[in-house]
Every structure is written in C-alpha cells, then in structure tokens.
C-alpha cells in the first residue's frame, strides 16, 4: 500500500493533502497497490476524505497537532499495516513530524521531493532539489517503508467525487504530556499567491519600487495577483509574502508572467511547473526563456502598457 499522511490546519484539511492523494494514487497504480490515508485531525474532515477514492482513512483524532504524539501513533499504525511507501507534506508540520517517524521506524526519509517515479526495475526514485536548487538529486531508499516529504503544488491533485469509498478506522492515540500548545495565532493569508490562477511577477528588471504599480495594473487587468523575485523583495520593493522561488512560495498557476526576472534556478524552482509561462525580458539570453512557452523581447515599460491596451481592447470587442 501507499500511505499518505493528511494534514489539518486550524480545523481545515490542508490542500497539500489532495496533492499527496493525487500523487499517491499515481504511484499506487504503478506498483499495483492501493492508497490509504492517515489523517491527524477531526472526524468531519476524515469523512470528507472518503470522497477521494481512498481505500481506507485512518483517523488519529486530535485538536492540536503534536509531533511526538503523531509520530508514536503513526509508527504503530505503520508497523501494523506495513505500507511500502509513505508520503507526508513537506510543510512546516510535515517536516517536523516525518523525521521523528522515520527514526522510530529506522527507515530512510527523502526531503522535500518535487518528483517521484517508479522506474523499469520497480525502484522508487525520489527527486529533490538541494544546494539551494543548484542540484537535482535522485535518491533511493533501501529500507521499508520508503518515506518522502513532498513539496506543495508540484504534484497533480486528486479530485473530489460524489461517491464515497472506504471507511474510517480509528488509530489509537498515544498521548504526550511534555508539550502543550498554549495559544495559536492565525496569520492572515492576505494576498496569498499559492492559490492564484494567474500570477504576474516583477523582478529586479523593474528598476524601481514604483515598477510594481505597473505590475499591479497588469495583474488587475488579467484578474491575477502579484508575485516577485527575491531581488525585488530584498530591495524592499514588495513584501516577502509575494516572493516566488526556493526560499519563497512554490506556485503552480494556469498562467505565470515573469517581468524583468532573469530566471535563476532558485526562482525557477518555485514556478516552473506553472501550466503556461510567459517571460518579458530585454535580454534574449535570460534563462527565464528556457522555461517559458512564450517570450516577449524588449523593455517591459514599453511592452506591458501595450499588452494592457490589447487585453482591454480584446475585452471590449468580445463585449465583456
């Protein structure tokens, strides 16, 4: 079996869960096995997960995610159901939980994978960026289960169906009393870019903070949100929450437009799986053009206003 570990955030199912189910199903098909989900959270959400074509949902009922409790309970579950592969989200919670679990099971754990494959020999290949994104490493694990944490937004999500499948089975909690969550303060997800369908990003090529006004206007016209490269963030032109890339957000929108961004490996690491990529840059040799479907060569301050005009004209013509 493939076991995926679902995640709950403030009583909601974290979207990484659907990425894990989607990827879990793909792998399970190749090794001709099924997919189970272990869910740490509330019963209502576990019930919702029955709509995603899983074989079983194992519920560890908990109000508050505690790494030590999760690791102990999941370790006993895994020893019982003996999955071949265990996938966990490469989120802050997941990356805090998974190493403890791997040590308990004395098995290998591959971090923050962006690709998972089964090769002709049936080996499980785990692909991940390391060295600040300069290297893609392929890792194999010789023990069972083979564990990996998976980066958000790089895998194909599972879709909900109206039918239900499988059933909920309760996991015995192993209470842990050396740790207490005193308070939880939600961070306002103001202008969160990870869920956006259209992202227009600006980089150092804007030349000045004011350049983001143009990017914002462009984003408004297309119904998108504003992203940025790290240089633009480091220069204080825009808030970190907009940063796309290795040390920022990973995004996978329908359309990503990079304006005045050179396309460093670290930036590409955060957006190369976008469905469609457009790059606007004055340098034909900029590496961003290696991942772009469409390029527009020239000064962004001339190009973007023209694009805005064209889109508005198109809309007028189509009567919308």
């Amino acid at each position: 079996m493939v076991l995926i570990v679902g995640e709950e955030r403030q009583e909601k199912i974290a979207p990484i869960t659907y990425d894990l189910i989607g990827e879990g199903k793909e792998l399970a098909e190749k090794i001709e096995e099924g997919v189970d989900c272990a869910y740490i959270g509330n019963r209502k959400n576990a019930g919702e997960l029955l709509h995603y074509g899983l074989d079983r949902v194992f519920l560890l009922e908990s109000d508050e995610f505690i790494e030590e409790e999760g690791a102990s309970s999941l370790a006993s579950l895994i020893e019982k159901i003996k999955p071949t592969i265990v996938l966990i989200g490469a989120t802050n919670r997941g990356r805090s939980l998974a190493p403890r679990l791997a040590v308990k099971l004395e098995t290998g754990l591959t971090a923050d994978c962006t690709g998972l494959e089964i090769n002709e020999k049936g080996e499980f290949l785990q692909i991940r960026p390391a060295f600040g994104g300069n290297v893609m490493a392929t890792i194999v694990t010789k023990t069972l289960p083979k564990m990996a944490t998976v980066r958000y937004k790089v895998m194909d999500r599972a879709h909900r169906t109206d039918e239900k499948s499988g059933s909920i089975q309760d996991v015995e909690p192993v209470p842990y009393n050396k740790k207490k969550i005193l308070n939880l303060y939600p961070i306002e997800e103001r202008g969160d870019i990870t869920e956006a369908e259209i992202i227009i990003s600006g980089g150092k090529g804007l030349g000045k903070k004011d350049g983001f006004k143009l990017i914002e206007e462009f984003a408004n016209v297309l119904g998108g949100v504003v992203g940025a490269s790290r240089k633009a963030v480091d220069d204080g032109w825009i808030d970190y929450s907009h940063q796309v890339g290795l040390s920022g957000r990973t995004v996978k929108p329908k359309l990503y437009i990079a304006c005045g961004i050179s396309g460093s490996v670290q930036h590409l690491a955060g957006m190369q799986t976008s469905e469609h990529i457009v790059a606007i840059n004055e340098n034909e040799a900029a590496p961003i053009f290696k991942v772009a479907d469409v390029g527009i060569l020239g000064d962004l301050y001339e190009i973007i206003p023209r694009l805005i005009d064209e889109v508005e004209e198109y809309r007028k013509k189509m009567g919308s």
Binding site: E106, T107, G108, L109, T110, L125, P129, A130, G133, N134, V135, M136, A137, T138, I139, V140, T141, K142, T143, V265, L268, A269, Q272, K290, V291
Partner: peptide, 13 residues
C-alpha cells in the same frame, strides 16, 4: 544510511 543519492544533475529545462 538507508538512503542513497544515486544521481545528481543540474536542473534541466
């Protein structure tokens, strides 16, 4: 060590 790095490569596009 149960894991092995079997290949490293530059990211390719």
């Amino acid at each position: 060590s149960p894991t092995r790095v079997v290949k490293t490569a530059h990211p390719s596009y």
